[in-house]
Design a protein around this nucleic acid. Structure first.
Length: 568
RNA sequence: GCGCCGGUAGUCUAGUGGUAGGACAUGGGCCUUCCAAGCCCAUAGCCCGGGUUCAAAUCCCGGUCGGCGCACCA
């Protein structure tokens, strides 16, 4: 089936391998006219559902970001690994670690690939798993981010973002201002992300340049609750980590039951409910859909819990969306690595008065007495005051510096307990992230809508796309291009287009052939102008899936098409 | 990245050493009163590079692209 779908996609202009004139580039696809329209409709539907209806904001950040962003985000740590694969058992190892472990070299990570390769050959290092010799085996860089240079020279490395999310996290200090420093708030972004995949697969399912629609919903984990009532009754098919671990099954339950049973975090559950309804609306076959929880070892470096929306296509389950609980990971990291604050000031209902033990050491005494240790002692005293103020009750107080005790008279520590009024605190929001892969959704909608059947003994291929998602909404044909029918049809085309419909006009060949053309690109309705139209100003409206026809007055055509689209 | 298989018009396909044939699609014409009808004409192809050979779509090597398996998918 996938072969025929990919063939149809290319033939009819949904998607095809890019740069084919030069042999093609693996992992890069172009969307043709139908695909681009389908993608635009899906994105518009996503925006309406996940941003407009939720009251979230949308931003549009650059795809190239400086190296420091990815040092902070943790993406760089996994970017530069040297991999060597054992020819005997097939296991991959970190080549630099192997060298560091087996020789007295302790900085193999900073060496070049060929240097590490040479050392492995010279020292005749062996596979730690099976013992086979690795001499002469190629060491390769395990490179998942696309690198580039910002400006001339190489002093300012940058990377194409591997997820649109970082553009949101990095701009958080600005975004919180736009949210008037109030939690919760959500920020979405739709755009391209880049991953230098080792082996792109299955047409547009695994590509190197992809389009993501991501939402980062920032919340106060202590006080904010999701509006669960909106989706409480929505059924979600859940395949929990526990069920996966003991051969359990997918269990379908309502969002409300899932939360109450403690199967899913309530925030994640809310979005599972919203997304399930949305997926069905855009044409995903919900009989081939599930939410699968990540196993603990599957979780990425930033998330503490994650559920994937998965669909079955061509007999495989593929990931459409990750619903990750990213906690405060990203904001904390950017707070730590950057000069800006990635926190919000949260006011208490009432200011509180706290007793805060402080020290103000008399350095004119400590300095001469302890010399270079004096400042360390002062720091220790502050720490001790915060953790164990009782230590200052006697005549002297003892701190440990470099494993040696130092005793200081309490009266030179300036110890005091101050009453401080605090009106709030700085908190780092937690993040719930639904991250949608648009390309995979396009593939799914096409695959789940793909139909092959017979009509009057003739094969018929059609795409059962939802009317508001289909690239073209209506095809308009004259029964034959003569006797004024073509002209009348063209008038109807202009009228429909001025009303905002996406219209395809076609007068070539026989009428049946034109219906088939529209079936293949998923056009839900075809309007035909015949001899009767010239008499009484009515046309036939033919529906794609049933091929049934209604006769409709031209004046009622727009409202007729609108109401049919809406009820489907 | 490794292994196996494959790459002939837009699509599908025939062609085991003598420089390509078909079907569908597409465009033009004729015909045609609602579901890929018929007739005529036209456009259009051997993935790239190297080698062997008098001669390569065909055999060999390398690359590339695609499918599948392993690994990977942060």
């Amino acid at each position: 089936m996938s072969d025929r779908l990919v063939e149809l996609a290319k033939r009819r202009g949904f998607f095809f391998p890019a740069s084919g004139a030069y042999g093609g580039t693996a992992g890069f696809y172009a969307y043709g006219p139908q695909g681009a329209a389908l993608k635009r409709n899906l994105i518009e539907s996503w925006r309406e559902q996940f941003l407009t209806r939720e009251g979230h904001m949308e931003i549009d950040a650059p795809t190239v970001m400086p190296e420091s962003v990815f040092e902070a985000s943790g993406h760089l740590d996994t970017f530069d690994d040297m991999i060597i694969e054992c020819p005997s058992c097939g296991e991959s190892h970190r080549a630099d670690h192997l060298v560091e472990d087996e020789t007295d070299i302790d900085d193999a990570e900073g060496m070049s690939l060929s240097a590490v390769e040479e050392i492995i050959a010279e020292q005749d290092l062996h596979c730690p798993d099976c013992g086979a010799s690795l001499a002469g085996i190629e060491v390769s860089a395990f490179n998942l981010m696309f690198g580039t240079n910002i400006g001339p020279g190489s002093s300012s490395p940058g990377y194409l973002r591997p997820e649109t999310a970082q553009g949101i996290f990095v701009e958080f200090p600005q975004l919180k201002e736009y949210a008037r420093n109030q939690l919760p708030f959500g920020v979405g972004q739709i755009g391209r992300a880049y991953r230098n995949e080792i082996s792109p697969r299955r047409s547009i399912v695994r590509v190197r340049e992809l389009t993501q629609a991501e939402l980062e919903h920032f919340i106060d984990p202590e006080t904010d609750k999701p509006p669960l009532s909106r989706v409480a009754g929505v059924d979600v098919p859940l395949y929990s980590a526990a069920a996966q671990a003991d051969d359990g099954e997918i269990e379908t339950m309502t969002v409300n039951d899932a939360v109450e049973a403690g199967v899913v975090n309530d925030w994640i559950a809310y979005y599972l409910g919203v997304a399930a309804e949305w997926y069905e609306r855009v044409g995903v076959d919900m009989d081939r859909f599930r939410y699968r929880q990540h196993q603990p070892e599957e979780l990425s470096h930033y998330s503490s819990d994650c559920w994937d929306a998965e669909v079955e296509v061509d007999g495989n389950w593929i990931e459409l969306t990750g619903f990750a609980y990213r906690g405060s990971y990203d904001l904390s990291k950017h707070d730590e690595y950057s000069d800006e604050e990635f926190t919000l000031f949260k006011q208490y209902d009432e200011p509180i008065t706290v007793e805060r033990p402080t020290v103000d050491p008399d350095m004119s005494v400590l300095g001469p007495e302890f010399g270079s240790e004096a400042s360390d002692i002062a720091e220790e005293l502050q720490r001790l005051a915060e953790t164990d103020p009782d230590a200052f009750e006697g005549e002297t107080v003892t701190v440990t510096i470099n494993d040696e005790d130092r005793t200081v008279p309490v009266d030179v520590t300036g110890f005091a307990v101050e009453e401080v009024t605090e009106s709030g605190e700085h908190i780092t929001p937690h993040v719930i992230e639904p991250s949608f892969g648009i390309d995979r959704l396009i593939y799914t909608v096409l695959a789940h809508g793909y139909r092959e059947d017979e009509v009057d003994g003739e094969p018929r291929t059609s795409l059962a796309l939802q009317p508001d998602i289909a690239p073209t909404t209506v095809g308009v044909f004259p029964l034959m291009a003569k006797d004024g029918m073509a002209e009348r049809a063209q008038e109807i085309v202009r009228r429909l287009r001025s009303e905002g419909f996406t219209v395809n006009y076609d007068d070539s060949g026989a009428i049946g052939r034109r219906y088939r053309r529209q079936d293949e690109i998923g056009t839900p309705y075809c309007v035909t102008v015949d001899y009767e139209s010239l008499e009484d100003d009515t046309v036939t409206v033919r529906e794609r899936d049933s091929t049934e026809q209604d006769r409709v007055a031209v004046d009622d055509l727009c409202s007729h098409l609108r109401s049919r689209s809406a009820t489907q």
